[in-house]
Structures are given as structure tokens and as C-alpha cells.
Design a binder for these strands. Structure first.
Lengths: 258, 258
DNA sequence: CGCTTCCTTGAGAAGTCTCAATTCGAGTGG
DNA sequence: CCACTCGAATTGAGACTTCTCAAGGAAGCG
């Protein structure tokens, strides 16, 4: 209930432990952070300067958390935009659909990451968000957040940076989609997830990709067969170790040099 | 000097005339708006509710405009982020480079559109911005803008919406790059530029694409040859009329139905 | 334990890229 | 004013990556 806007901030060096969600959950962080028992993500979420006096205001704002079961939709394209969300545990995908049927995965949101920013421009969500596994999200009412941002400068900065990060990460993904080969796309994706895991204090080299091959393919602009073939090839070359959705990265440099 | 953050807002119905920049400049708007002589984009830039009492504060904020000559760089990847910009006339591209040499066009910014939001996340620009023709931009110091956003709610809304729009438009481009054929990409691009022209009060069916075939290709994730072939094919089918960079859309529905 | 969904792998088809040769056009200097 | 030059655009032909279609196998779930 406590965590506000989540931020997988590069500026925050402290990894945060997180309750494994399932048998196949990511391995624990190198350090276990006991002080964050009620809200494992506090470290990640809080603007540094805010904790002392302004924390209560922020906590008052987060009125609730919500559980989203695997396959369940948190919000749908066209829904009115009322809240931002912070993924508290689990993982969701955001998807956009073109014309009837044609759907593309736009983003993968892991624990600690913000969700729903696509609704701000229009007061209407441009994407849908679907849980890839049983997840929980914090609900942050946007009007109240706006008010808070006008009171507290660090909160304003935080929100701006969250939006800015989404802009940059989408731009990077545009680069992947616009100019890279299948090998490079898959490799970039694995390294990206690995990096985000590191930031959240999980293992950087082993993780459970919650997406199906089809979802990965959609996100990467290739077909599921190409994803599968590429992963197999990576394994043969000794770059990774795959077991269905569970991935271990064996040779980081090899992946980077594709 | 007067225009603040520019917004090509759908909510603003009034087209705005703009001084043609060159011989090949876009045709004039259907209506000529005389009252905006000093700042042709005032209509586009102003949050509706703001004009009355808060306008002076906003004007004080925009300390200067800058001219950027064709080919000149406004900011570069890695530059420290101090200002947002609003394209006042002309057009710029934003580009990101991968590894040495490999560069991709991330966005096309037309008059009335904001620029530089990619710097917010990092205090460092993630993209470079290069003028496609002689252009001028308004400079909006970001720290001052932040302050203003905390004072004035409509200004805050405006900035949020600008960022939200960029997030959504990048997501749409990801969809184009991720799942569409060359024909669809080119068609989507032409229709997008046409739509943005309409919003700014220019002709929707005739315009000068300032980009080279190579830049278009980079933006669309295809090669310059494919762009050229596709445009030629469109012309043969009577969908468009091309004369180098000058484009006239003949059959909107035909393009949409690709 | 059976069903459904997901994944893997193969083979041929298709779209786009690469390389190359011309042509076009704008800007420059004689 | 015209010829020249250099970058940009067009077009062709062959190569290559990825897609499509198809079949079989693995795995998760009730």
C-alpha cells in the first residue's frame, strides 16, 4: 500500500529483495533489504529527498493496490484514464491493436515500473495492459498526483522523469525495430530484461521471461518461429541456456557483440 | 518570442496561417489568421484557460528564439539538458545513433511541435536534433517551466499532455515498425504528415517532405531504395503525385486501405 | 492423465536488401 | 547563361533474411 510511483532508477544503487512469486521466480538479490518489509519497493519508489517530511502525503495518495490475475486486463484501450499504476509484483504487457485483430506488444512492465502513462495525452488509455502472471499493482489517482506534484518539487521531478524514461525507452525500441536483425533484436531484448532485473535487485543472468514466444516476437517485430529459432541458435552457440521461458545468460559479451 | 510550449492540439480547431519559408513551402491555410502576426502559433501554443491572466508569466519564460540552419544541429546526444524547444517554423529530425555510424531517425518535428523531451529523464539529451531546412525554434528553459507548472495548473496539464502525446506517438510508430509492410509504412507516414499538417492549418493533401529518401527509410525501418520504389508504385496506382520531395496525396482512402 | 496451449524444427515462398548503373536536380563556377 | 559537379533519386537483378505453412513434440493445467 505504501509505494507510490515506482521508479527503477539508475540513481538508486541499493538492490531490493522481492518475494518470489512462483516456483520459477527470479533468484533473490545479492543483498536482502530487511527494512523494507511492508513495501519492498520503497527504495525504488521514493524520491530521495522526499522520505522525511512528505512521505505521509504520498502514502495518503496511494489509496489502494489491486491484484491482476494472469491474463486479466488492468485497463483497455479506450478506457478513461483515471489512475497511474506501479507494478508491485509480477509482470504485465502493454498492447496496442491496429485494425481488427492485429495486435502488437508495446511494452513489458516489471515490478517497480510505472504503467498507464499512455493515458495522459488523451484522458483515455491508448494501450491495454494485460498481466503476464498473477501480479499486483499500486493505484495512483492521477488528479491527486498532479496536485501533489505542484506541492512537492521532488514529486514533480519524479513524475517528469518517469515520463521521460518512457519516451527514451520507446525511442530505443524504435531503433531496435527499425534497424536490427532478428539476432540483434532478441539479444537486445534479453540484455534489456537482464539490465532491468539488475536494477530491481534480481539476478542479472537468470530470469523467467513471462512472455510467450509469440508475445516476444510481437514486441520485437518478428514471428514467433524466428524467436524460437534464434533462441535455439543462441543456445547452440553457448550464449544462453533456455528451458522454456526460463533463461540463463551465459555469455554477456557474446550477446552484446551480435 | 511569444510562443511557449507548442501543442498541435486536436482540441484546437482553429487553423493557423504560417509564413511560407521557401518557394516550395506548404500552401496556405484555408483561413488566414491576422491577429497572430507576431506569433503565428499562439493559437497552437496556448493552453486555452491560460491566456488571460497568466500569459505574461509564460512570455517572460520564453527568453529567446533561435535560428537553426539546414543541416545544423540544435542539440546532440549527450548534451546537457537545459531547455525544451518548440518548433516555430521549419522542420527538424531527431536521430539516435546505435554504435559508431549506425544512426536512426526517431522523429520528425514540424512547426508547432515540441522538441527535446528526450532530455528530461537523464538531464542529458538522448537524441540529436538536426534541422531539415532553415528553421527557428523557441527556447523554453526547463527549470523555469517546471516552476511555472507548479504555479499554474493548466501549464502543468499542458506539459504532461505534451509528454503523453510523445509517448503515444512513439508507441504508434513502434506498431508501424513492428508489424507493417513497406507499403503500409510509407502510407502511414504520408497520412501522418498529412494529418499533422491539417492540425497546423496547412494543406492536408500537398506538402513538401523535407526528408531525403534515406531519412524516410531510416524512420520507417526500410531502405531508401524501398522507399523510392514504393512511392513510384503509389504514383503508378494513382494514389499520390510525387515530384522529388513534393508530395500530393490523390487518393486518401486508397492509401488508408493498404 | 488427457487436453490445450506453447514450442520447436523443416522446407519452400515472399518481401526486402544489396549492389550497381543511370538519371535527375540543385548549386557552382567558368 | 550554360556546363559541370555532386548528392539524391530511380530502377533493375540477384541474394538473403525472414515469413508462412505444416507437422510433431513438450509442457502446463484442470
Amino acid at each position: 500500500m505504501l509505494n507510490p510511483i515506482a521508479l527503477p532508477s539508475v540513481a538508486l544503487p541499493t538492490p531490493v529483495a522481492h518475494r518470489p512469486v512462483r516456483a520459477t521466480a527470479p533468484v533473490r538479490a545479492r543483498r536482502d533489504v530487511a527494512r523494507c518489509s511492508t513495501c519492498a519497493m520503497r527504495q525504488l519508489c521514493m524520491p530521495q529527498g522526499l522520505c522525511a517530511e512528505d512521505l505521509p502525503k504520498l502514502e495518503a495518495l496511494i489509496c489502494s493496490a489491486r491484484t491482476v490475475r494472469r491474463g486479466e486486463v488492468l485497463f483497455r484501450t479506450g478506457d478513461s484514464f483515471d489512475n497511474l499504476y506501479a507494478v508491485r509484483s509480477g509482470a504485465l504487457k502493454t498492447v496496442m491493436s491496429h485494425r481488427l485483430g492485429r495486435e502488437q506488444v508495446i511494452g513489458l512492465k516489471l515490478a517497480g515500473e510505472p504503467l498507464g502513462l499512455d493515458g495522459i495525452s488523451n484522458d483515455t488509455h491508448a494501450c491495454s495492459a494485460v498481466a503476464l502472471e498473477d501480479s499486483s499493482v499500486c493505484i495512483v489517482p492521477y488528479p491527486a498526483l498532479k496536485r501533489l506534484c505542484r506541492e512537492i518539487g521532488t514529486m514533480q521531478d519524479r513524475l517528469h522523469k518517469l515520463m521521460g524514461e518512457q519516451i527514451v525507452s520507446e525511442a530505443r525500441q524504435m531503433m531496435v525495430l527499425g534497424s536490427q536483425s532478428a539476432d540483434e533484436r532478441v539479444s537486445a531484448f534479453l540484455l534489456d530484461v537482464s539490465e532491468r532485473n539488475t536494477q530491481r535487485g534480481y539476478s542479472s543472468n537468470e530470469f523467467n521471461l513471462r512472455m510467450t514466444r509469440e508475445e516476444m516476437g510481437s514486441y520485437l517485430g518478428i514471428t514467433l518461429e524466428t524467436v524460437s529459432r534464434t533462441l535455439s541458435r543462441f543456445q547452440k552457440r553457448g550464449l544462453i541456456d533456455i528451458q522454456g521461458k526460463f533463461i540463463r545468460i551465459v555469455d554477456f559479451d557474446g550477446l552484446r557483440q551480435l
